[in-house]
Simulated assay, not measured.
Amino acid sequence: MPKVLPRDPRSLARVVVLQAGFASDLRGGLEQPRLEWLIEENLVRARDAKNVLAASQPLLRGLLENRQELDKLIQTYAPAWPVHLLAPIDRNILRIALYELLYHTDTPAKTAINEAVELAKVFGSESSARFVNGVLGTVMTALSRGELN
């Protein structure tokens, strides 16, 4: 459970999707995890649960459907670390942020990056936030140069 639970439904959705992606990795990615129990487990207020679920479902679906492409991008922009050897938390934080940067353009790039760094601070190791920020900064440079679509 995070040290400080965010209040914004989209931020809470990222927490839930991070946990679901982590669980999916541990189970071999064979099925889409159920989000309802994670929302309940994160003590989301009942009045917010519907909004968190609505924000979580497409994010998780996009993450799972584009996992291979997202992992290729991670490998390209963090070549010193084979994707399968990355900490599952870091890997899933990067997947979420990359999905939002590339496929969910409603989310401003700065927001996607800031949210990823915050997730890394809460759930990752001491070096996770720096690592995630570095990879996403490199991706943003590639996007601004037109190297990624």
Rank of each mutant, 00 (worst) to 15 (best):
S144R: 14
P108L: 12
P108T: 06
E115L: 05
V122W: 09
L119N: 10
A116Y: 03
V117G: 00
V132H: 05
R130N: 07
Y103F: 15
A112W: 14
E118R: 15
A120D: 06
L119M: 15
R145K: 11
E126V: 09
G134Q: 06
V139L: 04
S144Q: 14
V135E: 08
E126Q: 10
S125L: 12
R130Y: 11
L119K: 10
L136C: 06
H104W: 10
T107H: 09
V132G: 00
T111Y: 15
R145P: 00
S128T: 11
I113N: 03
P108Q: 11
E118A: 13
G146H: 05
S127T: 14
L101K: 09
G137P: 06
R145V: 00
H104G: 03
L101T: 04
I113D: 03
K121N: 09
S125T: 14
V135Q: 04
N114W: 10
S127C: 01
E126G: 02
N133V: 00
T105A: 07
S128D: 08
G137F: 01
I113P: 01
F131P: 07
G124A: 01
R130D: 12
R145C: 01
E118T: 12
G124Q: 01
V135A: 05
A112P: 13
N133I: 00
A142W: 09
A142H: 10
L101W: 10
A120M: 08
F123T: 04
L136N: 07
N114L: 10
L102Y: 08
V135P: 08
R145D: 06
G137M: 02
A112R: 12
A109E: 15
L136P: 04
H104D: 15
V132R: 04
F123K: 06
V135I: 13
P108R: 12
L143F: 00
S128F: 10
R130G: 02
S128L: 07
F131W: 13
V122G: 01
V139F: 02
T141L: 14
S127M: 05
V135G: 05
S127V: 08
